[in-house]
């Protein structure tokens, strides 16, 4: 199968500091890949490298199609001066192909798709709950028609009951629309629940990878075992 994302021998630098070392990674269309690591492991740097945002890279990154990203801090991910409807319309405005009516219709459809009540269209981000805001972020990202969605700790700031629902949404989007997902998290439990393949990062390297069952049931690296023991 043609890979959606291929990374070969990638080194990444932030200012003078090397934050990524010898990363090899390929993601096939339709996969949900979990990227696990603690703070400073380089997992967010890898995301930035894929998006060419603020990380200087050596090596090869091949991405077919567009990538979009959603973040942990839902409050700062949405422009506080715009209404939900306006925020979600933005990618369509930038693209500039659709008429005003078509744009409005696409936004309405997408709101339904990510299970947002249509009455929230005229609210500002500060008037929404964390879970609702994350849905707006996901919907906006999807309106841009990405092949790959990178989610950087998208549920870490949410309450557990809300967390579960957002995870279900991501899972459904993958199953229904075939969105490929790179899911970054420090929380192995969440990653295990959602992902088919898991990568463990430490100190800028991918130290272990495999299917979810392999990594959870038969971890090879001592660090992975330590991570697992912390949550078992």
């Amino acid at each position: 199968m043609n890979e959606l994302l291929e990374i070969r021998q990638l080194n990444g630098f932030y200012k003078k500091k090397q934050v990524l070392t010898g990363i090899d990674l390929s993601i096939a269309p339709g996969e949900i890949v979990g990227l696990v690591g603690e703070s400073g492991s380089g997992k967010s740097s890898l995301a930035k490298a894929i998006l060419h945002a603020g990380i200087r890279t050596e090596g090869e990154i091949r991405l077919t199609g567009k990538a979009q990203m959603i973040f942990q801090d839902t409050y700062h991910s949405l422009n506080p001066a715009m209404t939900v409807g306006r925020i979600m319309e933005e990618p369509l405005l930038i693209e500039g192909r659709l008429t005003k009516e078509e744009r409005k219709q696409r936004v309405r459809d997408m709101m339904g798709h990510v299970e947002l009540d249509l009455t929230l269209k005229d609210r500002y981000p500060s008037e929404l709950s964390g879970g609702q805001r994350q849905r707006v972020c996901i919907g906006t990202a999807l309106l841009n028609d990405p092949k790959l969605l990178i989610a950087d700790e998208p549920v870490s700031a949410l309450d557990v009951t809300v967390q579960a629902k957002v995870l279900q949404l991501l899972d459904r989007l993958n199953a229904q629309d075939g969105i490929t997902l790179l899911f970054i998290s420090h929380d192995l439990r969440v990653v295990y629940e959602l992902c088919n393949r898991i990568l463990i990062m430490k100190d800028g390297r991918i130290i272990e990878q495999g299917s979810d069952e392999e990594v959870f049931m038969h971890p090879k690296e001592p660090y992975t075992k330590k991570l697992l023991s912390a949550i078992m």
Binding site: V160, T161, A164, L167, D171, R189, V190, E193, F216
Partner: peptide, 14 residues
């Protein structure tokens, strides 16, 4: 019950 059900279990959704 809802809270407990929301904790990601070592079990799959699908």
């Amino acid at each position: 019950k809802e809270l407990l059900a929301s904790i990601p279990k070592i079990r799959k959704l699908r």
